[in-house]
Simulated assay, not measured.
Amino acid sequence: MELSDIRREYIQGGLRRKDLNEDPIAFFEHWLQQAIDAKLPDPTAMTVATVDQDGQPFQRIVLLKDVSNEGMVFYTNLGSRKAEHLKHNQRISLHFPWHHLERQVHITGVAEKLTTTEVMKYFTSRPKESQLAAWASKQSQRLTARSALEGKYMELKQKFAKGEVPVPTFWGGFRVKINSMEFWQGGEHRLHDRFIYQNQTDGQWDIERLSP
């Protein structure tokens, strides 16, 4: 089959201005809850795009861990490639692909590091296995073999078998301060519905419909 022959119609419903909330965060939370209720796999999974010092974009999947009027939060190894990119360029893009609902949400903003208190609070809430994995992985660094990673994990498991796992100094998180949010709903005959919220200097949101 030719790739150009793969297509389908988007027929689950449209998106009209009257359907929107004046607050994009509230509307995002509404869509996110519908994605959760629909039992989509990994409804909080989002593509995180950053740019290196040469202008090369990179993307990867990260899980959203909090959303509020302050922004959207994710956690990572501070030695990872994305964290290194954000040291030099705080601009970031997020994308939620809810294919089964024929929806997408695209976000642009600026990433700011979380406080030590915020990081500690979340790290201590994680399962112990995830805490150990954070210590074991030197994220984005070259790895000779998987056995080396697994060996490090088992070493740490024995080391902290009887005690709490401390928060690694190289582990943290970011809050994305939102500049824009675009909501996309698939439409029949490729007549999709797109609305973009743009943050104004007075803290209000300007809402515009975009052509598909």
Rank of each mutant, 00 (worst) to 15 (best):
T124N: 09
A83I: 05
A45G: 08
L101M: 07
R103S: 03
L191R: 07
T44G: 14
L156A: 01
N69L: 13
E9P: 01
I92G: 03
I107M: 06
M154A: 13
E2N: 15
D5W: 10
R146Q: 15
G173V: 02
T124V: 12
K113I: 13
L101S: 02
F174Y: 06
A134N: 00
L32H: 08
G173A: 01
D202I: 08
Q200D: 07
W205N: 01
R209I: 02
A148P: 10
K18C: 15
A26Q: 14
F27C: 04
L20S: 09
T117P: 15
R7P: 06
L78Q: 06
D37I: 05
A148T: 12
L3F: 13
S130R: 00
G79N: 12
F183Q: 12
G71P: 03
Q139N: 00
F183E: 12
D52C: 04
L149V: 10
S137Q: 03
Q158Y: 00
D52W: 06
H99C: 11
V105F: 05
W184C: 06
H88R: 10
N199I: 09
G109H: 00
R7D: 10
E2H: 09
V67M: 15
V110G: 08
H100R: 09
K159V: 01
F123A: 02
F160N: 01
Y75H: 04
E84M: 10
E188F: 12
S4H: 11
D54S: 14
Q204W: 13
K39P: 07
R142W: 10
F160G: 00
S4A: 12
S125P: 01
V105I: 10
I178Y: 10
P168S: 03
K18H: 14
G151D: 11
T50Q: 09
K121Q: 10
T117V: 15
I36C: 10
T115E: 09
H95T: 11
L64E: 11
F183L: 04
L149S: 14
E102D: 05
P97N: 07
M1I: 14
G55E: 03
